[in-house]
């Protein structure tokens, strides 16, 4: 669906992309993470032919649209007809209303009139702008602009939806609606490639995550695998509660009492069975046992460091 190989983009003396590799499969909701200046937006702009990388290749829908500094404009235009893009920090034309905006964007895709009108109505309903359909965009709040930006990205019913920090400026209700829309896209078999710095959002809607640091992909996997791997490397934190006190002296794990009959065990691996046996050997019983999962944020911070 989307493949990037050894992409290099240098701005003056800054190497924004340093041999980036990406492989996004059809139907994936791919969360693209990275600290500020890591190269997220540069990657997205390259995918759309908006900037010129110096080296590498980009393939969209199985067609190579870019190689070593040159876009194949014919192939790129064809690919863009199947893509929806929502940019970061953008506004739309202030003098147009949402209906006029979507109408003119639909014209770029040569959508027939009847279909266009139907689609515009559906989208304005979907993003909650039906009531303000004839108000000038110049009078919109940041959140309303974001909603319209999403609507324009969906006008062509895209197979690949590229979203750059899409939830910035949205209120909690808007964020929830936004996540629903992404889930709907996934259900419909669409591919979503979306960058965000709000990791909780990524964790909730994405099935695969890529972490870019200094222009290089440092990690790419499913969230489950990433967490498992992180636990394997960084160690397990297990919280247990027993029916009576347990003496943990002599064990190879680090144990900290947390209160009456409650302990935190830090171990290199998954030692839940060993803990169970150890407690049982002392004639005690485990009432609760919980492996504390790392948040994506913890993993991300560790990666960035």
């Amino acid at each position: 669906m989307l493949k990037v190989e050894n992409l290099v983009k240098v701005y003056k003396d800054v190497r924004a992309l340093d041999g980036l590799n990406l492989d996004v499969k059809q139907g994936q909701v791919y969360g693209f993470l990275g600290p500020n200046g890591a190269g997220k937006s540069t990657t997205i702009l390259s995918l759309l032919g908006l900037i010129f990388p110096q080296e590498g290749s980009i393939s969209l829908f199985g067609e190579e649209v870019f190689r070593d500094g040159k876009y194949d404009e014919g192939k790129l235009v064809k690919a863009k007809a199947r893509i929806g893009y929502m940019p970061e920090h953008a506004t739309l034309w202030d003098f147009l209303t949402p209906v006029q905006t979507l109408d003119i964007i639909a014209d770029a895709f040569k959508i027939p009139k009847a279909e266009k009108e139907k689609r515009i109505g559906e989208l304005l309903d979907l993003v909650g702008l039906k009531e303000v359909r004839n108000r000038k965009v110049g009078k919109f709040s940041k959140g309303m602009r974001q909603r319209l930006l999403l609507a324009q990205a969906l006008i062509n019913d895209p197979e690949l939806l590229i979203l750059d920090e899409p939830m910035t400026g949205l209120d909690p209700k808007g964020i929830a609606e936004f996540k629903d829309i992404i889930r709907e896209q996934k259900k419909a078999g669409k591919t979503v490639f979306f960058s965000s710095h709000i990791l909780a959002h990524v964790e909730e809607v994405c099935d695969t995550v890529g972490v870019i640091v200094k222009g290089k992909l440092r990690l790419e996997d499913s969230i489950e695998n990433i967490k498992r791997e992180f636990l394997r490397k960084a160690g397990y934190t297990i919280i247990i509660e027993t029916n009576r006190p347990v003496d943990f002296s002599g064990v190879e794990w680090s144990v900290t009492p947390l209160g009456e009959n409650k302990y935190r065990v830090l171990a290199e691996g998954d030692v839940r069975e060993e803990i169970h046996d150890f407690v049982a050997n002392q004639g005690a019983k485990i009432l609760t046992m919980q492996v504390k999962e790392p948040s994506l944020e913890e993993i991300f911070l560790k990666m960035v460091k």
Partner: peptide, 11 residues
């Protein structure tokens, strides 16, 4: 940012 929106379309 309007140019990014416009040029992301098949033009």
């Amino acid at each position: 940012g309007t140019l990014r929106v416009a040029m992301s379309k098949p033009l």
